[in-house]
């Protein structure tokens, strides 16, 4: 399958076969985990993940809680 999009995911350049954000999230084994998504410095609320369309050159950040003081 031809890559459809070039994006930056957590600082790493990569290509995606689909322009659906939900497809990307599903591919990352994040099911049942708490995370937050930001695209081009804008937070994408959970309620919009399933309908969100990615674009070429999007800068995507996916963050989670880790140990900290």
């Amino acid at each position: 399958m031809q890559p459809k999009l070039s994006i930056t995911l957590n600082g790493e350049s990569t290509t995606l076969p689909s322009d659906k954000l939900q497809d990307l999230l599903d591919s990352l084994n994040l099911q049942n985990k708490r995370y937050a998504v930001e695209i081009n410095r804008e937070i994408i609320p959970k309620s919009k993940h399933s309908s969100y369309q990615l674009s070429d050159n999007d800068r995507i950040e996916i963050v989670e809680a880790v140990g900290g003081g």
Binding site: K33, R34, V63
Partner: peptide, 25 residues
Amino acid sequence: VTVALRRTNMGQNKDEPNLLDFIDP
């Protein structure tokens, strides 16, 4: 309980534990 926010590890396996699985909000 304080936590920090960091980029998620990409390519983690499905059962990899997350802090909030242990420290239930």
